Structure formats: structure tokens, C-alpha cells
Simulated assay, not measured.
Amino acid sequence: MIYLRSFMLSSYIDRNPNIYPDHVFKHIAGETLFLNRITVLYGSNGSGKSTLLNLIANKLGMLGSEKMASFEYSEYVRRFLDWSRYQLGSDRHEEEIRQLPEGSRYIKSEDILYEIKKIQQEAVLREGILYEQRSKGMTQEQVSQYASSHEFKKKMGIIQYSQEKYSNGETSIQFFEEYLLPGKLYLLDEPETSLSPANQIRLAEQINELARFFDSQFIIASHSPIMLGTLQAKIYNLDRSPLQTAEWYELDNVRFFYQFFHKHKSLFE
């Protein structure tokens, strides 16, 4: 299922080189991304891939979107958002959908690291669980009652136990297994954070399966060769102007790894 069919970046770029987010996207201003079931935004540090994810999340009003800049730049952010455009996909009857599926969300690498930190610190863990309940619509009174309940204490115990049992990478995998559900749109910012190569493949295959068989759509910011090589994705190279797609093995970061291992080829023979 394609929930978000396309996203067009604002064509207006302020002449002032310090204006955010104009200066981030000046090399691809006015370009349109045509999105597949899995679309990857690739680019070097500073290419704007994470900013673009957050821009899309803000434009769509998605859960997990965050304020893009300080008050100093709010006027320019609003202008950029206003000038950016998107087109939603169609349902099974070929009629354009009017809204994203409930539960669609933007998941940042910081969210994953916070989940790990939450497990590692009881106070942060407690606040994290209660915050999660508030975000689901509980009133403050209901949250207070929940905090003294057996259910809450049981959940605390389970997560604290997992702290001793699982590594950061395994905790990240658990996070994705819990939060990535069928029939949603997900924006993922560097989901490979803390994951070993084997777990990166495991996550990428989970994403492939959700997209192919369970009507989920993903837009992912990543420069991991393992993720890029495993995901069945359309890849946009944000390091190039005009905006263009590429095969995973053509990307600079992937070729850097290839050249590194090729240089040391004799050590593996």
C-alpha cells in the first residue's frame, strides 16, 4: 500500500545563506520525491536526509514530528512547509485516501536511544512509561492511578529484567518488533543505530516483509551499506543535484566499504 505517493520540496529558497531550512535544500529545491513501499533517503552527513524526514512528518502532522528550529527561524520554517506539497496514495478501490492510517509515526534515532536509556535508568523508565500513556490519551488522573497499579509495576519489572538480559542492539530490535505494525506509514531516521550487521539485516528483512505482505510503507534515512543492500527499496541520493535515484552499490558510502575490504582482501584468503 502506498499511503504517501509523492512529496515536493518548496521551490522558493531565500537568498540569505543562513536561513533554515532553505539552505539545507537549496541544491534540490522544487524537486519531487515519488515514493515506493520502501523509499530510502541516502546522503552524507549534512545532506539533509534527517531534516527531510522531519519536514515530511511536520507537513503531514505525524506522531513523533518535532519542532524544526528555534523561534528565530520559525517564520522561514512555516514558509518552507507552506510551499512544500504532497499527494496521498489510493485505497484498494483506486480512490485517493484522505488521511494517513492511525498509528503512523516518525521514529528518530534519538527515540531508539531513549528507549535504551529508559531501560537503563529506573526514574527515566518510570517517566517514559507514564509519558507513553499520556500520549495515548490518558488524563493526568488516570495516569496517577495507573502509576500505582499492579499492571504498571509488572511492566516496570519486565523492562528492568530485559536490561540485564539484552544488549543495546537487542533492545533496539525489540523496540522495532513492538512498534512496527501492519498497515501504517513509518518514517525511520537511521534505524540501524546500535545494531550489529546481523541485526541490521534482520530489521531490514522485517521491513521488507511488512511492506510486501502487510500494507506498511516506509521512508527511511540511512547510509548503512548493510541496510541499503538488504532493503527492497527505491533509493534517493541527496548528495546529487538534481535529485536522482541510484542503485545501492553505486553509492559512495557503499563503495568506500568495498574499497576498504578489497584493499585487505589477502587477509580473508
Rank of each mutant, 00 (worst) to 15 (best):
Y166D: 00
S167D: 07
S167N: 05
N168M: 05
N168A: 11
T171R: 13
S172M: 02
S172Q: 04
I173C: 00
I173K: 00
Q174T: 01
Q174E: 02
F175K: 02
F175C: 01
E177A: 03
L180Y: 02
L181I: 02
L181M: 12
L181S: 08
P182C: 08
P182H: 10
P182S: 12
G183V: 10
G183H: 10
G183N: 13
L185C: 06
L185D: 09
Y186R: 05
L187Y: 11
L187K: 04
L188W: 10
P191F: 04
P191D: 03
S194Y: 10
S194H: 15
S196I: 03
P197D: 02
A198I: 11
A198S: 11
N199F: 08
N199P: 00
N199I: 00
N199R: 07
I201L: 05
R202W: 02
R202S: 06
L203I: 03
L203C: 03
L203E: 01
A204N: 09
A204C: 09
A204Y: 10
E205S: 12
I207L: 09
I207N: 02
N208A: 02
N208T: 06
N208F: 07
E209R: 15
E209I: 05
E209F: 14
R212N: 10
F213N: 14
F213R: 15
F213W: 10
F214V: 00
F214C: 04
S216F: 13
Q217G: 09
Q217K: 13
Q217P: 07
F218S: 08
I219E: 11
I219N: 13
I219K: 09
I220R: 06
I220G: 07
A221E: 11
H223Q: 13
H223A: 07
P225Y: 06
P225M: 11
P225G: 13
I226S: 02
M227C: 03
M227V: 15
L228S: 09
G229L: 12
G229P: 05
G229D: 15
G229Q: 12
G229F: 03
T230R: 14
L231W: 05
L231T: 03
Q232Y: 10
Q232L: 11
A233F: 10
A233Q: 04
A233C: 05
K234V: 11
K234W: 03
I235L: 08
I235R: 09
N237S: 07
